[in-house]
């Protein structure tokens, strides 16, 4: 896999490689590779904007209690997008933030979504009192579709997790997990890899032990690579200059591995290419979902490099090695 910072050269097949003197007004090569939407399989909602009760040191969009750059979405706005999504053939819905359970109508919004298809909510699990968990369980039970709770936990000890997510969050998150498991959920525990590859096996074992300690014996775990933007740039490092997606890297690469080939993100302020690039104006595609679906995405940002290497890391299911007909 070519990952060197080669100069951006657009390769043309010989039949098209005509001298400029013959076609004097040939359009200049696009500065970045472009990815068109193959099908709108995933519809993401920035339902809580950038508002979060925590202030994690690795947050790629720097969410915090006082980050109001994106505000909460109205339930009605979500419902309109859901209606529209049915005719577009969307396969699954994701709700993120910020912290989605900062939204006072989050359970109702999930009920709305579950009438259309499977829904996933990405949460820190610290705002899940018993009553809300029971309401979530009722919503899950009432739908033919799965409700997935994806819970962020970034360490196997309070020291390891709280250094990233804030003091006391390890215990509060585990309490949330315990309640979810008690209500019959099997949350997907997601964790950003902050360790070396050769430690993965022992870390996963430790995660299983910690989760079993709160009654979660069938833990579903998902490891995410760090996204070197937002707060993460000061926690670890930003991207090197060479770490970006070039035209050469797209040769023989299956673009369906990238989330932007099958997803769009609806926010209170327009439709974006993906949930990672919220802070990048280049990723804001259009005001409406239909327009944004029709518009290709430029892989202009360095975070695209992580997605390129890892495959659509935001999805619940592994997406590597698809076989298309």
């Amino acid at each position: 896999m070519g990952v060197a910072a080669a100069p951006v050269v657009r390769r043309l097949p010989p039949s098209q490689a005509v001298p400029n003197s013959v076609v004097p007004h040939q359009s200049p090569p696009a500065p970045h590779p472009r990815v068109s939407l193959r099908a709108l399989d995933q519809l993401w909602f920035q339902v809580a904007g950038t508002v979060c009760n925590l202030r994690c040191h690795h947050c790629f969009i720097s969410c915090a209690p006082d980050n109001h750059s994106f505000w909460f979405m109205e339930r009605e706005t979500v419902r309109e997008a859901l209606e529209q999504s049915a005719s577009l053939g969307v396969k699954e819905y994701y709700f993120t933030g910020g912290e989605p359970f900062m939204h006072r109508e989050m359970v109702e919004i999930l009920e709305d979504a579950l009438a259309f298809g499977p829904a996933t909510v990405l949460t820190n699990a610290t705002l899940l009192p018993e009553r809300r968990v029971r309401a979530l369980a009722r919503a899950a039970e009432a739908s033919r579709y799965s409700l997935e709770l994806r819970v962020s936990l970034d360490g196997v000890t309070p020291e390891m997790n709280d250094a990233i997510r804030g003091e006391g969050t390890f215990a509060r998150c585990l309490q949330g997990v315990e309640r979810l498991v008690g209500a019959g959920f099997l949350p997907i525990i997601t964790t950003m890899q902050s360790w070396n590859d050769d430690e993965t096996e022992s870390i996963l074992r430790a995660f299983r032990e910690v989760l079993a300690g709160v009654g979660y014996t069938r833990a579903r775990l998902k490891i995410l690579p760090p996204l070197r933007i937002g707060e993460e740039t000061s926690r670890s490092r930003g991207y090197d200059a060479a770490e970006r997606v070039t035209h050469d890297m797209m040769v023989d690469y299956d673009p369906s591995l990238l989330l932007c080939s099958s997803a769009r993100l609806v926010t209170a302020n327009g439709v974006y290419a993906c949930p990672i690039l919220l802070d990048y104006p280049s990723a804001r595609l259009a005001d409406s979902l239909a327009e944004a679906a029709a518009r290709p995405v430029e892989l202009a940002e360095q975070a695209c490099y992580t997605c390129y290497l890892s495959g659509a890391l935001c999805s619940n299911m592994p997406t590597s090695g698809e076989v298309h007909l």
Binding site: G117, Y145, V323, H324
Partner: peptide, 25 residues
């Protein structure tokens, strides 16, 4: 077909496949 008509290894689970998606397929 094997997985779905558009992708050989696509999973179509009962709880993860909307009716409108199948209708479109």
């Amino acid at each position: 077909f094997h997985g779905s008509p558009r992708q050989r290894n696509e999973f179509l689970w009962e709880s993860a496949t909307p009716t409108h998606f199948l209708t479109k397929l």
